[in-house]
Simulated scan of single mutants.
Amino acid sequence: MKTMFSPIIPIAALTLTACAQESAQDSVIEAKDKEVQPMFRSINEKISVSPQISLEDIKAAQADGVTLIVNNRPDGEEPSAPQSADIEAAAKAAGMDYISIPITHSGFSAPQVEAMINALDSSKGKILAYCRSGTRSTLLWSLAQAKKGMAPDEIARLAGNAGYDITPVRAMVEALAGPQ
Protein backbone atom coordinates (compact mmCIF):
# COMPACT_ATOMS: atom_id res chain seq x y z
CA MET A 1 0.00 0.00 0.00
CA LYS A 2 1.31 3.43 -0.85
CA THR A 3 1.96 5.91 1.92
CA MET A 4 -0.05 9.08 2.41
CA PHE A 5 1.09 12.32 0.83
CA SER A 6 4.28 13.93 2.01
CA PRO A 7 3.63 16.93 4.28
CA ILE A 8 6.17 18.79 2.15
CA ILE A 9 3.97 18.53 -0.96
CA PRO A 10 0.39 19.35 0.05
CA ILE A 11 -2.07 18.43 -2.67
CA ALA A 12 -4.06 21.62 -2.40
CA ALA A 13 -0.99 23.80 -2.94
CA LEU A 14 0.05 21.87 -6.03
CA THR A 15 -3.41 21.94 -7.51
CA LEU A 16 -4.42 25.54 -6.94
CA THR A 17 -2.89 26.27 -10.30
CA ALA A 18 -4.80 23.32 -11.75
CA CYS A 19 -8.11 24.75 -10.67
CA ALA A 20 -7.17 28.23 -11.84
CA GLN A 21 -6.25 26.77 -15.22
CA GLU A 22 -9.58 24.95 -15.36
CA SER A 23 -11.35 28.05 -16.62
CA ALA A 24 -9.07 28.29 -19.65
CA GLN A 25 -9.42 24.56 -20.33
CA ASP A 26 -13.19 24.85 -19.82
CA SER A 27 -13.38 27.39 -22.63
CA VAL A 28 -11.61 25.00 -24.98
CA ILE A 29 -13.80 22.10 -23.85
CA GLU A 30 -16.98 24.16 -24.21
CA ALA A 31 -15.94 25.07 -27.75
CA LYS A 32 -15.37 21.37 -28.48
CA ASP A 33 -18.73 20.56 -26.84
CA LYS A 34 -20.43 22.70 -29.45
CA GLU A 35 -18.67 20.71 -32.15
CA VAL A 36 -19.12 16.95 -31.78
CA GLN A 37 -18.14 15.97 -28.23
CA PRO A 38 -20.60 13.57 -26.57
CA MET A 39 -22.10 14.61 -23.25
CA PHE A 40 -20.60 11.57 -21.49
CA ARG A 41 -16.92 11.14 -22.36
CA SER A 42 -15.55 7.68 -21.75
CA ILE A 43 -12.16 7.53 -20.04
CA ASN A 44 -12.24 3.74 -19.96
CA GLU A 45 -14.85 1.00 -19.82
CA LYS A 46 -15.52 1.73 -16.13
CA ILE A 47 -15.83 5.52 -16.01
CA SER A 48 -17.08 8.44 -18.07
CA VAL A 49 -16.92 12.11 -17.18
CA SER A 50 -19.28 14.89 -18.08
CA PRO A 51 -20.00 18.56 -17.76
CA GLN A 52 -22.90 19.43 -15.43
CA ILE A 53 -25.74 16.98 -15.90
CA SER A 54 -29.43 17.76 -15.85
CA LEU A 55 -32.17 15.67 -14.31
CA GLU A 56 -33.04 14.50 -17.84
CA ASP A 57 -29.45 13.26 -18.31
CA ILE A 58 -30.03 10.70 -15.55
CA LYS A 59 -32.16 8.66 -17.98
CA ALA A 60 -29.43 8.81 -20.63
CA ALA A 61 -26.86 7.70 -18.04
CA GLN A 62 -29.10 4.83 -16.99
CA ALA A 63 -29.55 3.79 -20.63
CA ASP A 64 -25.75 3.89 -21.01
CA GLY A 65 -25.42 1.37 -18.16
CA VAL A 66 -24.29 3.80 -15.44
CA THR A 67 -24.85 2.43 -11.94
CA LEU A 68 -23.06 5.16 -9.93
CA ILE A 69 -23.08 8.93 -10.35
CA VAL A 70 -20.22 10.85 -8.73
CA ASN A 71 -20.87 14.57 -8.27
CA ASN A 72 -17.65 16.58 -8.11
CA ARG A 73 -19.40 19.95 -8.15
CA PRO A 74 -20.08 21.81 -4.89
CA ASP A 75 -23.62 22.96 -4.23
CA GLY A 76 -24.14 26.63 -4.96
CA GLU A 77 -21.34 26.89 -7.52
CA GLU A 78 -24.01 27.54 -10.15
CA PRO A 79 -27.31 28.22 -8.39
CA SER A 80 -29.40 27.55 -11.52
CA ALA A 81 -27.87 24.07 -12.00
CA PRO A 82 -29.44 21.05 -10.31
CA GLN A 83 -27.95 20.74 -6.85
CA SER A 84 -26.65 17.61 -5.16
CA ALA A 85 -29.92 16.60 -3.52
CA ASP A 86 -31.80 16.92 -6.82
CA ILE A 87 -29.33 14.74 -8.74
CA GLU A 88 -29.15 12.25 -5.87
CA ALA A 89 -32.94 11.87 -5.75
CA ALA A 90 -33.17 11.40 -9.53
CA ALA A 91 -30.30 8.89 -9.52
CA LYS A 92 -31.81 6.86 -6.70
CA ALA A 93 -35.25 6.95 -8.38
CA ALA A 94 -33.56 5.50 -11.48
CA GLY A 95 -31.97 2.74 -9.38
CA MET A 96 -28.45 4.20 -9.42
CA ASP A 97 -26.07 4.86 -6.56
CA TYR A 98 -24.87 8.39 -5.92
CA ILE A 99 -21.94 9.97 -4.11
CA SER A 100 -20.88 13.58 -3.74
CA ILE A 101 -17.16 14.40 -3.66
CA PRO A 102 -17.23 18.17 -4.19
CA ILE A 103 -14.06 19.78 -5.52
CA THR A 104 -13.83 23.53 -5.07
CA HIS A 105 -11.42 25.80 -6.88
CA SER A 106 -9.08 25.58 -3.89
CA GLY A 107 -7.83 22.20 -5.06
CA PHE A 108 -7.81 18.52 -4.22
CA SER A 109 -7.24 16.83 -0.87
CA ALA A 110 -6.14 13.39 0.26
CA PRO A 111 -9.67 12.57 1.57
CA GLN A 112 -11.15 13.46 -1.83
CA VAL A 113 -8.66 11.20 -3.61
CA GLU A 114 -9.46 8.38 -1.14
CA ALA A 115 -13.20 8.91 -1.62
CA MET A 116 -12.76 8.62 -5.39
CA ILE A 117 -10.68 5.45 -5.00
CA ASN A 118 -13.43 3.99 -2.80
CA ALA A 119 -16.09 4.94 -5.37
CA LEU A 120 -14.10 3.38 -8.20
CA ASP A 121 -13.38 0.22 -6.23
CA SER A 122 -16.87 -0.25 -4.80
CA SER A 123 -18.91 0.25 -7.94
CA LYS A 124 -19.85 -2.96 -9.72
CA GLY A 125 -20.97 -1.12 -12.86
CA LYS A 126 -20.21 1.95 -14.91
CA ILE A 127 -19.56 5.29 -13.25
CA LEU A 128 -20.41 8.79 -14.45
CA ALA A 129 -18.50 11.59 -12.71
CA TYR A 130 -19.42 15.20 -13.41
CA CYS A 131 -18.55 18.77 -12.51
CA ARG A 132 -18.85 22.06 -14.39
CA SER A 133 -16.91 20.87 -17.43
CA GLY A 134 -15.66 17.39 -16.54
CA THR A 135 -12.15 18.69 -15.82
CA ARG A 136 -12.18 18.36 -12.03
CA SER A 137 -13.75 14.91 -12.35
CA THR A 138 -11.00 13.86 -14.75
CA LEU A 139 -8.24 15.32 -12.59
CA LEU A 140 -9.61 13.62 -9.47
CA TRP A 141 -9.85 10.32 -11.37
CA SER A 142 -6.24 10.85 -12.49
CA LEU A 143 -5.01 11.37 -8.92
CA ALA A 144 -6.95 8.31 -7.73
CA GLN A 145 -5.53 6.14 -10.50
CA ALA A 146 -2.00 7.35 -9.79
CA LYS A 147 -2.37 6.50 -6.12
CA LYS A 148 -3.57 3.05 -7.16
CA GLY A 149 -0.37 2.66 -9.22
CA MET A 150 -1.42 3.36 -12.81
CA ALA A 151 1.40 4.75 -14.96
CA PRO A 152 1.20 8.54 -15.45
CA ASP A 153 1.57 8.23 -19.23
CA GLU A 154 -1.41 5.84 -19.35
CA ILE A 155 -3.46 8.20 -17.17
CA ALA A 156 -2.60 11.10 -19.48
CA ARG A 157 -3.44 9.03 -22.57
CA LEU A 158 -6.83 7.92 -21.28
CA ALA A 159 -7.76 11.41 -20.09
CA GLY A 160 -6.57 12.86 -23.40
CA ASN A 161 -8.70 10.39 -25.35
CA ALA A 162 -11.71 11.83 -23.49
CA GLY A 163 -10.63 15.37 -24.35
CA TYR A 164 -9.00 16.36 -21.07
CA ASP A 165 -5.44 17.44 -20.25
CA ILE A 166 -3.92 16.36 -16.91
CA THR A 167 -0.96 18.76 -17.18
CA PRO A 168 -2.21 20.86 -14.23
CA VAL A 169 -1.83 17.85 -11.89
CA ARG A 170 0.84 15.90 -13.78
CA ALA A 171 3.50 16.48 -11.09
CA MET A 172 1.17 15.16 -8.39
CA VAL A 173 0.15 12.22 -10.58
CA GLU A 174 3.81 11.30 -10.96
CA ALA A 175 4.45 11.72 -7.22
CA LEU A 176 1.46 9.55 -6.30
CA ALA A 177 2.31 6.88 -8.86
CA GLY A 178 5.84 6.60 -7.54
CA PRO A 179 8.67 4.97 -9.44
CA GLN A 180 7.39 2.99 -12.39
Rank of each mutant, 00 (worst) to 15 (best):
T138K: 08
S23M: 12
N72W: 02
E78M: 11
R157I: 00
N72S: 08
R157Y: 05
A93V: 03
I9M: 06
A91F: 00
D86H: 01
E154R: 09
G134D: 05
I155Y: 12
T167H: 01
E78S: 13
V36C: 13
F40D: 11
S6T: 12
I101N: 03
D75Y: 03
C131A: 04
I103N: 06
I11F: 14
G160H: 08
S122W: 01
T3G: 08
A85M: 05
V173L: 00
S54L: 10
T3A: 09
I117Y: 00
A12E: 12
R170T: 00
A94T: 05
I47E: 13
A110D: 09
E45S: 11
V28T: 15
N71G: 03
M172V: 07
V173T: 04
A144N: 10
P7K: 10
N71V: 02
V49E: 11
D121S: 07
F108A: 07
I29G: 03
E88H: 00
A20W: 11
L68G: 03
G163I: 10
I166C: 02
W141I: 01
I58S: 15
Q25C: 06
S54N: 14
A12F: 05
A12L: 05
T135P: 03
L143R: 02
N72L: 01
Q180K: 09
M39D: 11
E114C: 02
G149Y: 09
I99L: 03
A13L: 14
F108S: 06
M1N: 07
G65I: 08
A13S: 14
M39K: 15
S48V: 09
V169P: 01
A63Y: 06
D153T: 12
A162R: 06
A175Q: 05
R157N: 09
V70G: 02
P74K: 08
C19D: 10
K34V: 13
A63M: 10
I103V: 15
D97F: 04
W141E: 02
K147P: 04
S42E: 14
